Computed example of a mutant assay.
Amino acid sequence: MFGLILQSTKYKDEFYHKNFALKRAKKNLNAEEIKRFYREYDEMKKLKSPYVVEVYSYLNNNEYTMEYLDCSLSNYIKKNNQKLSHSEKRNLINQVLKAFKYLHSKGLLHRDISPSNILLKIYEDVVVVKIADFGLVKVPNSQLTNLNTELKGSFNDSGLVTEGFQNYDILHETYALTKLIFFIITGKTNVSNIKNPSLKQFVQKGLSADKSKRYQSVSELNIAVTALKE
């Protein structure tokens, strides 16, 4: 969360013999910032999905415990992009889309989609996607949703600079998801000079300056991904 987090650390619980993560707020936060930090924990606590980072306990010194994940999607793709098969990449994309379809069914918009905010749990037989960092989440009718007009989120539509970050909607979310999907497929963030015609068409639609032409939902994105040709 921008400006509110001191650090996120790993620790091993001696009773469970298992690693956990601890997310801690800065010491100099004002009352409203403390509420926002707690709201991030509270919103994540309400969510029951295998594709959202699980949080456990909120402690009195403004920190909370959460499951420990092995790495970020950013680091995983950068390290393994050349080795991942087409089906393995599709599996990651499908999990991401399931996660965001679930969030949107709850009326939530993440607003900070990036490869660094998607974490992974790596098992021997499967890699599981986990959505993290809900500090900018847009909650319906919440007085604590950050309405700052400053553009945040590395994959967000630059048009939000003029539209205002408080006006972020589903078409901005599908924009960022389009860039995320492109990153998973290619390992790149620069969407210029795409040689694959099918992928180029997919990206152009998802990032269209005309928002009416963008993917209107995660379901539309899913259909488009399924139709992509290698």
Rank of each mutant, 00 (worst) to 15 (best):
E88D: 08
F134Q: 12
S212T: 13
E173G: 09
S87A: 04
K83C: 00
A209K: 12
L92A: 14
S142I: 03
L199W: 08
V53W: 00
I118C: 02
S219A: 13
I5S: 08
T9W: 00
N196C: 02
F37Y: 03
N94S: 11
N80M: 02
A21S: 13
Q204F: 08
K89L: 06
Y102K: 04
V96A: 13
K179Q: 15
N19W: 10
V218G: 03
Q7C: 10
Q166H: 07
T189D: 14
K211S: 07
T145I: 11
K213M: 13
L29G: 10
S57N: 11
L144I: 12
D70S: 07
D157M: 01
K83G: 05
K10T: 12
L4V: 10
S142A: 12
T226P: 01
G107Y: 14
L119T: 06
E32P: 00
K205N: 11
Y168G: 04
K27L: 15
G187Y: 05
F20C: 02
S114W: 04
K45Q: 05
A99I: 03
L151N: 11
N94Y: 10
N60A: 06
H86D: 14
F155W: 06
F183K: 11
S198M: 00
S154W: 05
K26E: 07
K10G: 11
V52D: 09
T189C: 06
Q216L: 04
L69M: 14
E43C: 03
Y51E: 12
C71T: 14
K101N: 11
K98I: 08
Q216D: 02
K152E: 12
L103P: 04
H86V: 05
E67Y: 00
T226G: 13
L84K: 07
G107D: 15
I170V: 12
L160F: 09
L180W: 00
N117H: 03
Q82T: 03
F183Q: 01
N167T: 15
T186P: 11
A176K: 05
A227F: 03
N19Y: 15
K205I: 12
S105K: 05
E124Q: 12
R214A: 05
Y76P: 04
S57L: 03
L92F: 09
D169F: 08
L119S: 03
F37P: 15
V126H: 01
E63G: 04
F134E: 15
D169M: 01
I122Y: 00
D112C: 04
A209D: 14
A224T: 02
